[in-house]
Amino acid sequence: KSAVKALFDYKAQREDELTFTKSAIIQNVEKQDGGWWRGDYGGKKQLWFPSNYVEEMI
């Protein structure tokens, strides 16, 4: 599983989504079709976030 870095702040709209700030590192990313991926951040595990808010880390 990979890690991504947030390009923008994102505030969860639902309880199954992540809230994060710009430059946050989201771990254990599971990529899905449809523009939403799952990952771990801030003590939350495998919640959804919009993939267009992040960049992949190499």
Rank of each mutant, 00 (worst) to 15 (best):
Ala12Glu: 06
Gly39Asp: 03
Leu18Lys: 01
Ala24Thr: 07
Lys44Glu: 10
Asp16Val: 09
Phe49Lys: 02
Gly39Phe: 00
Asp16Ile: 08
Lys5His: 06
Gly42Ile: 04
Trp48Phe: 09
Lys5Cys: 14
Ile26Ser: 01
Lys31Gln: 08
Ser2Asp: 11
Lys5Phe: 07
Ser23His: 15
Lys11Trp: 13
Ile25Phe: 07
Ile58Cys: 14
Ile26Gln: 03
Val29Ser: 02
Glu15Asn: 09
Gln46Arg: 09
Phe49Ala: 01
Tyr53Ser: 08
Ser2Ile: 15
Ser2Pro: 14
Leu47His: 14
Val4Arg: 01
Glu55Leu: 08
Gly43Phe: 06
Trp37Thr: 03
Gly42Leu: 09
Asn52Ala: 14
Gly43Pro: 08
Tyr41Ser: 05
Leu7Val: 11
Glu56Asp: 13
Gly43Lys: 07
Lys45Tyr: 14
Thr21Cys: 15
Arg38Phe: 05
Lys22Cys: 09
Trp36Pro: 02
Asn28Met: 06
Trp36Glu: 04
Gln27Thr: 15
Trp36Ser: 04
Trp36Cys: 07
Asp33Cys: 14
Trp37Lys: 01
Ala24Trp: 00
Ala12Asn: 04
Thr19Asp: 11
Lys5Trp: 01
Glu56Trp: 07
Glu17Met: 02
Ser23Asp: 15
Ser2Leu: 15
Lys22Val: 11
Ser23Ala: 13
Asn28Lys: 05
Glu15Thr: 10
Gln27Pro: 03
Glu17Leu: 00
Glu55Cys: 13
Asp16Tyr: 07
Lys31Thr: 07
Arg38Lys: 12
Tyr10Cys: 08
Gly39Trp: 00
Lys45Asp: 07
Asn28Thr: 00
Met57Trp: 13
Trp48Ile: 05
Gln32Tyr: 15
Pro50Asp: 05
Ala24Phe: 00
Tyr41Trp: 08
Gly35Val: 07
Glu17His: 07
Ser23Asn: 15
Tyr53Thr: 09
Ile26Glu: 01
Asp9Glu: 08
Trp36Val: 00
Lys11Leu: 15
Tyr10Phe: 06
Met57His: 11
Lys5Ile: 14
Trp36Tyr: 09
Gly34Pro: 06
Ile25Arg: 04
Val4Gln: 05
Phe49Asn: 00
Glu15Lys: 12
Gly39Arg: 00
Asp40Asn: 03
Thr19Asn: 09
Arg14Leu: 08
Gln27Tyr: 14
Asn52Val: 10
Arg14Thr: 13
Phe8Lys: 14
Arg14Trp: 10
Arg38Asp: 03
Phe8Gly: 08
Thr19Ala: 07
Asn52Trp: 13
Ser2Val: 15
Trp48His: 05
Gln32Trp: 14
Tyr53Val: 11
Ala24Glu: 06
Lys22Glu: 09
Ile58Gly: 13
Ser51Lys: 10
Trp48Cys: 07
Thr21Trp: 08
Glu15Ile: 11
Gly39Ala: 00
Ser51Met: 11
Tyr53Trp: 07
Pro50Cys: 09
Arg38Trp: 02
Leu7Lys: 11
Gly34Asp: 08
Ser23Arg: 08
Glu56Cys: 12
Ser23Cys: 15
Ser2Trp: 11
Met57Ala: 09
Gly39Pro: 03
Ala6Lys: 01
Lys22Arg: 11
Gly42Phe: 05
Leu47Ile: 03
Tyr41Gly: 02
Asn28Ala: 05
Gly34His: 07
Glu56Ser: 09
Gly39Tyr: 01
Gln32Phe: 15
Ile58His: 13
Thr19Lys: 02
Asp40Glu: 01
Asp16Ala: 06
Lys44Asn: 10
Asp40Ser: 01
Ser51Ile: 07
Phe8Thr: 09
Lys31Ile: 09
Lys5Tyr: 07
Tyr41Gln: 03
Arg14Val: 08
Tyr10Thr: 06
Lys11Asn: 15
Leu18Val: 01
Gln32Arg: 14
Gly34Thr: 07
Val54Tyr: 01
Phe8Pro: 06
Phe20His: 02
Lys22Ser: 09
Ser51Glu: 09
Phe8Val: 11
Val54Pro: 01
Lys1Pro: 12
Tyr10Asn: 04
Glu30Trp: 11
Tyr10Trp: 08
Ile26Asp: 01
Asp40Ala: 00
Lys1Trp: 08
Glu56Lys: 06
Met57Tyr: 14
Lys44Thr: 06
Phe49Ser: 02
Leu18Asn: 02
Ser2Phe: 14
Ser51Tyr: 06
Ile26Trp: 00
Gln46Phe: 06
Lys5Leu: 11
Ala24Met: 06
Tyr10Asp: 06
Val54Ser: 03
Lys5Val: 13
Asp16Leu: 06
Ser2Cys: 15
Asp9Phe: 00
Asp9Gly: 06
Gly42Asp: 13
Ile58Asp: 14
Ala24Tyr: 00
Phe20Gly: 02
Trp36Ile: 01
Tyr41Lys: 02
Trp37Ala: 04
Gly35Arg: 07
Lys11Ile: 15
Glu15Val: 12
Trp48Thr: 04
Ser51Asp: 06
Glu30Arg: 13
Val54Thr: 07
Tyr53Ala: 11
Glu30Ile: 15
Gly34Val: 05
Trp37Gln: 03
Leu18Arg: 00
Ala24Asn: 07
Glu30Asn: 13
Glu30Cys: 15
Gly43Cys: 10
Ile25Thr: 05
Tyr10Leu: 00
Gln27Gly: 09
Phe20Leu: 05
Trp48Ser: 05
Lys31Trp: 06
Gln13His: 09
Trp48Lys: 10
Gln32Pro: 12
Ala24Gly: 09
Lys1Val: 12
Thr21Pro: 15
Glu15Asp: 13
Ser51Gln: 09
Asp40His: 00
Met57Ser: 09
Glu30Ser: 14
Leu18Thr: 00
Thr21Ser: 13
Val54Asn: 03
Lys22Tyr: 05
Gly42Gln: 11
Leu18Phe: 04
Glu30His: 14
Gly34Met: 06
Phe49Leu: 03
Lys45Arg: 11
Gly34Lys: 07
Lys45Trp: 08
Pro50Trp: 04
Gln13Ile: 11
Leu7Thr: 07
Gln13Phe: 07
Lys44Gln: 13
Ala3Met: 15
Gln46Ile: 02
Val29Asp: 02
Gln32Leu: 15
Gly43His: 08
Ala6His: 03
Gln13Leu: 10
Tyr41Arg: 01
Ser23Ile: 03
Ala12Gln: 07
Ile25Val: 12
Gln13Gly: 08
Gly42Ala: 11
Gly42Lys: 08
Val29Cys: 06
Asp40Thr: 00
Glu15Arg: 08
Arg14Gln: 11
Asn28Asp: 05
Tyr53His: 10
Leu18Trp: 04
Pro50His: 03
Ala12Ile: 02
Lys22Ala: 13
Gln13Lys: 12
Phe49His: 03
Glu56Met: 08
Arg14Ile: 06
Ser2Gln: 13
Lys45Phe: 14
Ala6Thr: 07
Lys11Ser: 14
Trp36Arg: 09
Gly43Ser: 10
Arg14Phe: 10
Asp33Glu: 13
Val54Ile: 06
Lys1Tyr: 10
Gln27Ala: 11
Asp33Pro: 14
Ser51Pro: 04
Phe20Ser: 01
Tyr41Thr: 05
Trp36Lys: 05
Ile58Tyr: 14
Val4Phe: 11
Phe49Asp: 02
Ala6Gly: 05
Ile26Phe: 04
Gly43Glu: 11
Leu18Asp: 01
Gly39Ser: 00
Gly34Leu: 06
Gln46Tyr: 08
Ile58Asn: 14
Ala24Lys: 02
Asp40Met: 00
Pro50Gln: 03
Trp37Gly: 03
Gly42Glu: 11
Gln13Thr: 12
Ala3His: 12
Ala12His: 05
Glu56Pro: 10
Phe20Ala: 01
Met57Pro: 08
Ile25Tyr: 06
Ile26Val: 05
Asp9Pro: 09
Ile26Lys: 01
Glu15Met: 10
Val4Trp: 09
Leu47Thr: 04
Tyr53Pro: 01
Asn52Arg: 10
Ala6Asn: 04
Asn28Ser: 06
Lys11Thr: 15
Met57Val: 14
Trp48Pro: 01
Asp9Thr: 04
Gly43Asn: 10
Ile25Pro: 00
Ala3Trp: 14
Gln27His: 14
Ala3Cys: 15
Glu56Asn: 08
Pro50Lys: 02
Gly35Leu: 11
Gln13Asn: 10
Gly34Asn: 09
Phe8Ile: 10
Val4Lys: 02
Tyr41Phe: 11
Phe20Met: 04
Gly35Tyr: 11
Glu55Asn: 06
Gly42Val: 04
Pro50Met: 02
Glu17Gly: 03
Ile58Met: 13
Val29Ile: 08
Glu55Asp: 08
Pro50Ala: 01
Ser23Pro: 02
Gly34Ala: 06
Ala3Gln: 14
Leu47Pro: 01
Phe49Gln: 01
Glu55Ser: 10
Trp36Asp: 04
Lys45Glu: 13
Gly43Asp: 13
Glu30Val: 15
Gly39Glu: 02
Ile58Trp: 13
